[in-house]
Amino acid sequence: MDRFVLNRLVRGVVVAGVVATAVCGGSPAGADPEPLPTTASDAVQQMIDMSRQSEQLNEQALGAQADLEAKLGVQHDAEDKLAAATGVVDRARDEVRKYQPVVDRTAIAAYQGARTNRLFAVLVSDSPQQLLDQMSTLDVLSEQTADQLKLYKQATDAATSAESVARAAADAARSAADQADAVRADVQRKQAELSDSTAKVVEAWSGLSATDRSALVGSPFPPGFDRDSLLQGLVPGSGTSALAAGLTRVGDPYVWGATGPDQFDCSGLVQWAFKQVGKDVPRTSEAQSTYGTPVAKEDMQAGDVVFFYSEVSHVGIYAGNGLMLHASTFGVPVGVAPVSSTPFHSARRF
């Protein structure tokens, strides 16, 4: 690598390293900065480290996006409940208004001292027949009024209850909207950080010579690995079948945020492979690390899913014999590598 290209690579590495370190919680303020790379191999290693930090950001941004989608779902549900509750309130109020004239007439009559009992009918009747007629009319009016007043009370109670539900629904809708707005801001911030970090990684990659790029990419299979023999020996099942599907993507490029069919990030490859066998697994490595059932490292079988780093930000599919299939990092195509090449966290069986 000539000096001009190395200097260009160094500049890209240093700038991106500062951005990624600030984002991912690297060296604290006031700590000594990372030393400048002085050789091509140092520059390549720093580019690898930057790619790793970008992968962390990628997983965080995907997680934030999933959180936003969940919050938006809650918000939409709350808004639907509010609309339904509002409709109930409107209908309840219409029902109240239907009985309001009866209530008003009864109240006015009572205020004016109207007498509608049987004694009053006796006093004002001029004949037995008139008395019977008046008493019958009073009975009917009294019964109708009582029924309507009862219905009025039921309608009023229903309206009050509906209004209470509507107020609660409105509060829930506002809260859901506020939470969605907060998460949306977080998504935008993480996406901006990821965009900045990945741009610097790409810039650093462009400064590598063909020889250095080839050395970084390496071989898609470790020495002695026989994909055909492995495929023939797999026992049919969701995990091993997903591994078989994933092995067909060896050589496809790593792209942040990609889920296939011909480019992937780490969790995108796992999600795509299991989708081919009818398993709908979560999108991010962190979410995938809670899916399925846990498996001890010494009990792992081909087709199990392996997770890496303390914060779980990388994932692959175990291929047996201490090897895994994974989408490694930018510039390195999908391939098979030793599990020991990455800090192990846990394993799950989907």
Rank of each mutant, 00 (worst) to 15 (best):
L208Y: 03
L208V: 04
S209T: 12
A210I: 11
A210F: 09
A210E: 13
T211H: 12
D212A: 13
D212Q: 09
R213V: 07
S214I: 01
S214A: 14
S214N: 12
A215Y: 06
A215Q: 10
L216S: 12
V217I: 13
P220Y: 01
F221N: 07
P222I: 04
P223F: 06
G224M: 03
G224N: 01
G224V: 00
G224S: 02
F225N: 00
F225D: 02
F225M: 00
D226T: 00
D226Q: 02
R227Y: 01
R227W: 00
D228F: 09
D228Y: 08
S229W: 00
S229C: 02
S229G: 09
L230V: 00
L230N: 00
L230A: 03
L230F: 03
L231S: 11
L231N: 12
L231A: 08
L231W: 05
Q232T: 11
Q232I: 13
Q232C: 09
Q232S: 13
G233P: 00
G233V: 01
G233H: 12
V235F: 12
V235N: 13
V235I: 15
V235P: 09
P236A: 14
P236R: 11
G237H: 10
G237S: 07
G237R: 04
G237N: 10
S238D: 14
S238C: 11
G239N: 07
G239V: 05
G239M: 03
S241R: 07
A242R: 02
A242P: 04
A242L: 06
A242K: 01
A244W: 06
A244F: 03
A244Y: 04
A244I: 03
A244H: 10
A244S: 15
A245Y: 02
G246D: 00
G246R: 00
G246L: 03
G246I: 05
L247H: 05
L247G: 01
T248E: 11
R249Q: 15
R249I: 02
V250Y: 04
V250H: 01
V250N: 09
V250A: 13
G251W: 08
P253F: 02
P253L: 03
P253S: 11
